[in-house]
């Protein structure tokens, strides 16, 4: 699994950080998403998939 984000779209709602804190964080200054692990291990795939689904701005892409 590869994780990429469109930071322009991100509205800083933090849903991804709530669901998959191992993989996502937010920039302190404006809350925009940061990907901590672009190729996360299998045990977090389910939560990363949920994060992508919950992201209100549809800013998270998985491939």
């Amino acid at each position: 699994m590869r994780v990429s984000v469109e930071t322009d779209k991100c509205c800083g709602a933090g849903q991804c950080v709530l669901v998959a804190p191992e993989v996502f964080d937010q920039r302190d200054e404006d809350g925009v998403v940061i990907v901590l692990d672009e190729a996360p291990p299998a045990e977090v795939h389910a939560s990363v998939t949920e994060a992508a689904q919950l992201c209100p701005a549809a800013a998270i892409a998985l491939s």
């Binding site: 779209k9 509205c11 933090g14 950080v17 920039r27 302190d28 925009v32």
Partner: peptide, 15 residues
């Protein structure tokens, strides 16, 4: 919208 919203998003991060 997002230009303006981002003035505040840093104040509402999970951290």
């Amino acid at each position: 919208h997002n230009e303006q919203r981002r003035k505040f998003t840093g104040d509402f991060t999970i951290k």
